[in-house]
Design a protein around this nucleic acid. Structure first.
Length: 541
DNA sequence: AATCGGTACTCACTGCCACT
DNA sequence: AGTGGCAGTGAGTACCGATT
């Protein structure tokens, strides 16, 4: 019995051992299987990724093919015809294809290539356009550029023509020519005239020819209106006047530049007056009167070179301190002199916007009509710069030289000016294929455009913040005059201001602009009132 | 007819920088 | 060290139209 038990035990032990060996075998093979599985999973993953890549590429290529079906004659983002299109039209015209047939030619050729031209903007259906015009002369030739913006501030080039003379009549004739071309181009729909009637505003510099041109244009537009508008004789006198009236605006950048010029002249006058009373003891006679530039500006220019960061790194002295000193009295005199000069200029150049001017009261109908007006007249210059590039390029005889010139221009913008833009604009080749001269030209034009363009979207916030905020005012009440600080505009109520007055902790709310217009508020300089400096009035007449 | 106000271009000069 | 190219600057000039 005992032996039997032992034998069984032995058998069990043997079986156990056997089992153990089998277990390890199993775990071993299990491990191998797991490894295999891992490897398989990995390969599945890579295959999946590959598949995804391929799918994306497929999509991309499919899009590309679809895109390619559409021939881009018109750039939707910049709202202009592409340079290629313009060049194409010019070439067609050079080959004696009549203007009225050009559209048909392009369409036919497109269908031959199994492609479709994209849409073309219809200016004649818009309203309240703004006409920009600017004259320029190069090497004795005069050019006039006409451009238009719509209410969304999209810009269109109407035409760039050479003129034999720059009188206002010639400008008008040139403009009529362009409109006539529009008419011819669109087969008897009077499109040019419709565009003309849609133009409600003009923007230009203050050249006397431009002013005269605006008058001539207004008259011409009225005569066209009588022909275009059905039932013109039925309209009342006011309705006729309203639709024939145009708003003339002038470039505010020119105004800024003129500020500088006027200030320079004012300073010069001030200096000569001052030097009469306070002759400078100097051995060098030539130092006193030299040139027509005012000494102050010259000093500013020199010190800008020595003191400002970036102008001249070697001489950089960055620290600046402002504190009251004995020259402040004169500073006030100089400032008053300058302000009187600026006032003089504003009287002349901004009369329309000052009291008594036609835009002073801000009639609501005008602000609706003038939605399309930009604040400056840079648009014609922009189109002109493109033309300039092409003209200059034509002067270069060989294609290799042309390419070289374009490349160096692009390199200059990239490496020297450090112009930030789409990186592809700086490349000379794409996918190992050298770019053509028109392509490079277009890149350069785009870069020049970008560097010239300013944000045309006016920041509403900055224009809303009143100049009064943060100023010290002398506020006249029936009870007397109080000195106060304008803290802020009441949120949500632009016309209302929070004001505190000296010796009174309370915050008051007033419509300061009305009081300012009535002459009950003066903006004062704190320091000036504290020291009660006797101010010498200074006038240029 | 002369002057003024306004715009734009050309020319000469200057200082800076890179290249030789 | 000398030189050429380049941009910025001021002066001069042309031109147009309005005003005196």
């Amino acid at each position: 019995m005992e032996r039997e038990l032992k034998e069984k035990e032995n058998v069990i032990q043997f079986m156990n051992n056997e089992q153990k060996i089998k277990d390890t075998d199993f775990s071993k093979s299990m491990h191998v299987a797991k490894e295999k599985l891992g490897k398989l999973e990995e390969s599945v993953n890579t295959l999946k990724a590959k598949n995804k890549d391929l799918e994306e590429e497929n999509d991309y290529v499919r899009n590309l093919i679809q895109d390619n079906n559409l021939l881009e004659l018109y750039d939707e983002t910049s709202n202009q015809f592409t340079a290629d299109t313009i060049e194409c039209v010019m070439n067609l015209q050079n080959n004696n294809i009549s203007a009225s047939k050009i559209g048909e030619v392009i369409r036919t050729v497109c269908s031959l290539c199994k492609r479709q031209p994209n849409r073309v903007e219809d200016l004649s259906k818009k309203s309240n356009l703004t006409l920009y015009s600017d004259e320029t002369s190069k090497f004795g030739k005069s050019f006039e550029v006409f451009a238009v913006t719509d209410e969304d501030k999209n810009s269109y080039l109407l035409g760039l023509r050479e003129m034999n003379c720059k009188s206002s009549e010639t400008v008008l004739e040139t403009f009529k020519d362009i409109l006539q071309d529009f008419n011819d181009l669109c087969d008897g729909n009077d499109v040019g005239f419709k565009v003309l009637t849609a133009i409600k505003n003009t923007m230009s510099d203050r050249a006397s020819t431009e002013k005269k041109f605006q008058n001539l244009l207004e008259n011409y537009r009225t005569t066209i209106l009588t022909k275009i508008i059905d039932g013109w004789p039925m309209l009342t006198e006011e309705e006729r006047a309203a639709s024939s009236r145009m708003n003339n605006f002038f470039c505010s950048l020119h105004l800024l530049v003129n500020f500088a010029t006027v200030c320079g002249e004012g300073l010069k006058k001030f200096e000569s007056l001052y030097l009469k009373d306070h002759p400078i003891q100097t051995d060098d006679e030539s130092e006193t009167e030299s040139g027509t530039e005012s000494g102050t500006i010259r000093l500013l220019r020199t010190s800008a070179k020595s003191f400002s960061r970036g102008v001249d790194e070697k001489n950089g002295v960055y620290k600046q301190t402002f504190k009251p000193d004995e020259t402040d009295v004169m500073t006030i005199q100089v400032l008053q002199a300058l302000f009187s000069c600026m006032l003089n200029l504003l009287d002349r150049q901004a009369a329309d916007h000052l009291p008594g001017g036609k835009y002073f009261s801000k009639p609501t109908d005008i602000s609706a009509e003038s939605k399309s007006v930009l604040k400056h007249n840079k648009l014609p210059e922009l189109f002109l710069s493109r033309e300039d590039i092409k003209l200059k390029l034509e002067e270069i005889p060989s294609n290799a030289e042309k390419k070289k010139a374009l490349k160096s221009q692009l390199n200059f913008r990239k490496n020297v000016l450090l112009q930030k833009s789409d990186k592809s604009y700086f490349l000379f080749s794409s996918k190992k294929i050298q770019k053509t001269i028109p392509e490079l030209t277009e890149q350069l034009c785009k870069l020049v455009d970008e560097s010239k363009s300013v944000a045309t979207v006016e920041s509403s916030s900055s224009s809303q913040v009143s100049l009064l905020v943060g100023k010290t005012i002398r506020h006249k009440f029936t009870e007397g005059t109080f000195i106060g600080n304008v803290i802020s505009v009441v949120p949500g109520f632009v016309k209302w201001y929070n004001v505190t007055y000296d010796g009174d902790p309370a915050v008051y709310v007033y419509q300061l602009q009305e009081d300012y217009a009535d002459g009950n508020i003066e903006i004062v300089v704190r320091w000036y009132t504290a020291h009660t400096v006797a101010v010498v009035t200074f006038q240029f007449n």
